[in-house]
Simulated scan of single mutants.
Amino acid sequence: MDLDLPLGTDPVAVLRRVEMLEHVLERAVALPGIRRKVGLDAVIGLVPVAGDVVAAALGMYLVWEARNLGMSKWQLARMTTNVGVDTLLGAIPVAGDLFDFMFRSNRRNLKIIRRHIDRHHPHARVIEG
């Protein structure tokens, strides 16, 4: 993955930054033997309280970028709810760590952002194959 991230505010630059952060938070490392990728979100979630706070702050950065794209209050509320659910349930000892492994709030939020970009910024459309 290209680490040269653009600093602009245009939809293409925002999308590249959001995709990189989602990759790091949700699927940076493949766990051997189970074919499942995990990221920084699941790892730092193992640190009680502080890890969940840091993961929530990083997740809210995606929401902030979405706001800068002009996304609706409804979309921003859905994204904030995803981060909130991940944070609250992820804070439960042991069970929360398993929940973090399964519930990928940043992945969900990236999908919301991509749908918005596809509809409102067609020049930045994402073509997945």
Rank of each mutant, 00 (worst) to 15 (best):
D41M: 13
V43D: 10
L46K: 13
L46N: 05
V47K: 07
V47Y: 07
P48N: 15
P48H: 07
P48W: 15
V49H: 00
V49C: 07
A50P: 08
A50L: 12
G51S: 08
D52P: 06
V53H: 08
V53L: 10
V54H: 00
V54P: 03
A55S: 06
A56Q: 04
A56Y: 05
A56L: 08
A56D: 02
A56G: 03
A57E: 05
A57M: 02
L58Y: 03
L58S: 03
G59V: 05
G59F: 10
G59W: 12
G59C: 03
M60E: 11
M60Q: 01
Y61L: 11
Y61T: 05
V63M: 02
W64L: 09
W64G: 13
E65V: 04
A66C: 07
A66I: 06
A66G: 00
R67K: 14
N68P: 07
N68Y: 02
L69D: 07
L69N: 03
L69H: 04
L69M: 08
G70M: 10
G70T: 11
G70I: 04
G70Y: 10
M71Q: 02
K73T: 15
K73N: 12
K73E: 15
K73C: 10
K73S: 15
W74G: 10
Q75F: 01
Q75W: 07
Q75I: 03
A77M: 08
R78L: 13
R78S: 11
M79P: 13
T81N: 07
T81E: 08
T81W: 12
T81D: 10
N82Y: 02
N82P: 13
V83I: 11
G84R: 12
G84M: 09
V85D: 01
V85C: 12
D86T: 10
T87Q: 08
L88N: 14
L88M: 06
L88Q: 04
G90W: 10
A91C: 13
A91L: 14
A91V: 13
A91D: 15
A91Q: 01
A91Y: 11
I92N: 06
P93L: 07
P93M: 04
P93K: 12
P93G: 01
V94P: 11
V94W: 09
A95T: 06
A95Q: 12
G96L: 03
L98T: 05
L98N: 02
L98D: 00
L98H: 04
D100W: 06
F101L: 11
F101H: 01
M102R: 08
R104A: 10
R104D: 09
R104H: 14
S105I: 13
N106Y: 14
R108S: 12
R108Y: 11
N109K: 07
N109A: 05
N109F: 00
L110R: 06
K111D: 09
I112D: 08
I112N: 09
R114F: 05
R115P: 04
R115N: 02
H116Y: 07
H116N: 03
H116C: 03
H116L: 09
I117D: 09
D118I: 00
R119A: 12
R119G: 07
R119N: 02
H120E: 10
H120L: 00
H121P: 08
H123E: 15
H123S: 06
H123R: 13
H123V: 13
